[in-house]
Design a protein around this nucleic acid. Structure first.
Lengths: 352, 352
DNA sequence: TTAACAGGGACACAAAGCGTCCCGCCTGTT
DNA sequence: AACAGGCGGGACGCTTTGTGTCCCTGTTAA
């Protein structure tokens, strides 16, 4: 990695607040240049900041000799132009990801998007960072006595194995979002719920039933008081953390039978999340009774956090975001770029 | 110049206190690491900052996962260690100069030291930067209706030719600190005073008399009302900006006669500033009546700004700083390193 | 000539920053 | 087992800074 990359990364760790200011000033300067000559109020409106804070910034930029203020408005100085030129190639490195975050966030109406640099499919380090970012987001949302429902998967596992806390979360509960899914033990929701709980000093409950059930088995099991009890806890979760998978990959991993997979494919299943299959538009293509979290529970959940990365996951993530009930997306650069490409295509279509 | 230097320069244009904050946080983190585990108050004392601001910083560093806070105090996290490691090789490049500034500042009891990177003897660009830095310092100190006395020399000339202002300084006066010194016209104090005044929309007065005079000529001239008048203005200067020269070089440039130069050499003259010659310890080795600013005027001046650079000037600068009546020193890296070497020698001697 | 819009001044109010002290708790020592 | 010292965190009063919102006067272009 280049020296400069690492300097920027250090700065992002050590002074993220200042970089925000820097971006603001850069954008103001840029806008002034593009506008040739512009007044304070007009500029404030176009940048969507109030007159007063813009004024503070332009006063500053003036004092730095980057723009000059005349009777007819302000314009950029030679020095300011030079700075913009020099900074342009650096902009992407410094703020590229945060721009991407903002773009994805607004498109899908999310509360927050976090993008870690890299591709978690090809880099173990990125995968780890993805997990850490997920932990940070979860920690931020957890409150006293919360119930957190989580799904399985490698990304969630990565997260579980790195989750830490400063103070033990005695009153919190971790529960699996759904039952057993025939996956490897390490990535089972049950396993991860217990791992997370142990690592944070929280409590956990397990759901010892298979996820996909016939109608009859479903009703029978639901009458079991101890099953019923844990299911009620799960469905009351205030926070859900889930991974996102490619529909076909997930179906195969779960060893669903061939006819079912074919049916899914025929229906255009594209993405999988919390046990449901979605097509490109975010519509559920197949629903079945489940002991665990149902769609209606997800919709009612206060905080839904999606975490998934890797360039091949881009489309699947976009599909789930279309579904529209997530609040936070944690992903990596590779997937985010894929998503952005999809947005570009959307935009191209809508203008033709 | 390295890529990184230029990035930092850009950033500093947009965010002048970026490095200050960065350094502060770096030093806190570093101190925490060195102390293994340390409490807030102890740390605040050792870093010489108040408890409250340290607390704000440690809260921040904690939120960034760079240090953790426990009952027994705080300690650095793995991530924090990693950041320190990554940052260490960059430290010199980022803060080397400001450390140097601080060292020189405290040694000579100055209010401010500014060091520009490079060597102004070998690089025109550095010389230009030196001038610009001088301009910035002067601008900062200028107030309404100030009288600014300046000397001659190439460095001052560089400064004069770059001095700019945002708003015309109508009430300010630029005056030469001393009379004509037989130098080239371009570097005469008179010339520079008028240049500065013209460039900033200020006023100026000139002193059309030779600097070195016999007793008789001195008394005669001082009785001339128009001379007397401008001399009074000069001696009332609130700000003095002066260069610093090597004693022998200056003496030759001024075409002083050989016996006088020999006398100076015998007395150990080492440095020259505002027309006086100083030995290594900052003692004036030769004084003569002058029409312009006298030593006692300098001592009484509110703001005395010295500006000089180049590795060969190091010792001369140190000598003038020993004199002890400067408030601000503007120099370059080459000279500063020479000065630092002298300080090292001082320290070595005082410990033996 | 006028209408629109420019920058700068002003001001009240909110928010942030800061120094300082205290308290209950943990820890290491006696 | 008791204790003392030092810890983090809470609190509070004060100052400084930031901010939204006007208004005023000058410039400009229609």
């Amino acid at each position: 990695m280049s020296i400069m990359q690492s300097l920027i990364e250090i700065q992002q760790k050590l002074l993220p607040d200042l970089l925000v200011v820097m971006k603001k000033r850069y954008l103001i300067l840029r806008q002034v240049m593009l506008s040739d000559m512009i007044g304070r109020r007009t500029l404030a409106a176009s940048l969507e900041i109030t007159e007063r804070v813009l004024r503070a910034e332009t006063d500053f930029l003036k004092s730095q000799g980057l723009l000059q203020i005349e009777a007819g408005g302000m314009r950029i100085t030679e020095e300011g132009k030079k700075l913009l030129d020099e900074m342009e190639p650096l902009y992407q490195q410094m703020f590229g990801l945060s721009d991407l975050e903002e773009r994805i966030r607004t498109r899908y109406g999310l509360k927050q998007v976090v993008i870690v640099p890299g591709d978690s499919e090809t880099s173990r380090h990125t995968k780890r960072e993805l997990g850490l970012a997920g932990c940070a987001v979860l920690r931020k949302h957890m409150e006293k006595d919360d119930v957190v429902a989580i799904t399985g998967g490698t990304t969630l596992a990565q997260m579980a194995n790195q989750l830490t806390t400063q103070t033990p979360l005695k009153g919190n509960w971790f529960v699996p979002a759904r039952g057993g899914l025939g996956e490897s033990m390490d990535y089972q929701a049950n396993t991860l719920a217990s791992t997370m709980a142990k690592r944070t000093g929280a409590q956990y409950r397990l759901l010892h039933v298979p996820d996909h059930l016939g109608e009859e088995a479903y009703t029978t099991l639901m009458q079991e008081p101890n099953v019923r009890e844990i299911v009620d806890v799960i469905r009351s979760a205030r926070i859900v953390v889930h991974g996102i998978g490619d529909a076909m990959v997930m179906a195969r991993r779960r060893r669903l039978d061939a006819t079912f997979i074919e049916a899914l494919q025929a229906e255009g299943a594209h993405a999988e999340a919390f046990g449901y299959y979605f097509d490109r538009t975010g519509t559920v293509v197949h629903r079945m009774p489940t002991i665990g979290l149902r769609l209606e529970d997800i919709m009612a959940t206060e905080v839904v956090i999606a975490i998934a990365g890797g360039s091949s996951k881009g489309e699947a993530i976009a599909a789930i975001m279309q579904f529209g009930h997530d609040d936070v997306l944690v992903t990596d650069e590779a997937a985010a770029l894929e998503i952005a490409a999809l947005l570009d295509r959307e935009a191209a279509i809508s203008t033709t």
